[in-house]
Amino acid sequence: MPTNALAPTTAAVSLRAVSKTYGSGPTAVRAVDQVDLDLATGTWTAVMGPSGSGKSTLLNCAAGLERVDSGRVLLGGTDITDADDETLTRLRRTRVGFIFQSFNLVASLSAAQNVELPLRLAGKRPPRADVREALRAVGLAERADHRPRQLSGGQQQRVAIARALITRPQVLFADEPTGALDSSAARGVLDLLRAAADGGQSVVMVTHDPAAAARADATVLVRDGRVEDRVVGADAVTVAARLAAMGA
């Protein structure tokens, strides 16, 4: 069996020869093509690439949101490639968190209710103080009872981060978390991600913005579904130059 061939890994996320194709026949698009990738625990990795390079699909495959066609996906050493829906649901409750460009808060719930939602869905009733603390950590202690539409974009994204972090997940997946924000709100969000990574959590972030990527520990450059390059500890200018060199 191919799984036996895998070496034990301490990486937070490991992809082994992962491929994913959309559609079939002449219109088929190979979004992820034979990707091997290890993302170390407690690091923040940015994924960059031109539009349509397959970076979001890569993130979704790594997070178990999308089934891969071939290859294996390991999350904290657990093979989730063929996990059933129940296992993946449990995974989302406990071991991974998500942040998206469009915030994706439940519009009918207050900020505090949104934050405690993952725990409530897992059948736990979090102490009020924990929820307050989570909101305070993202600077929104005063906004606990506001509904999403009463908050600015940056504030909504910070609620989404608080919601993603309240389960203390091993890996935080972020797809263009600053894409809809102005630069000062974006900076606030990136600070929070930096703090999470420094606290030992792994962060995987898809972004278009070299300045955002520069805050990460490493940047993976993707084109046509393949990993083309990997930059460690580079500043925004270097990242932008590498991206430009790829023809983005």
Partner: peptide
């Protein structure tokens, strides 16, 4: 779908 994303089971 959003609820499923933050951990709701079927």
């Amino acid at each position: 779908a959003l609820l499923r994303l933050v951990g709701a089971g079927r």
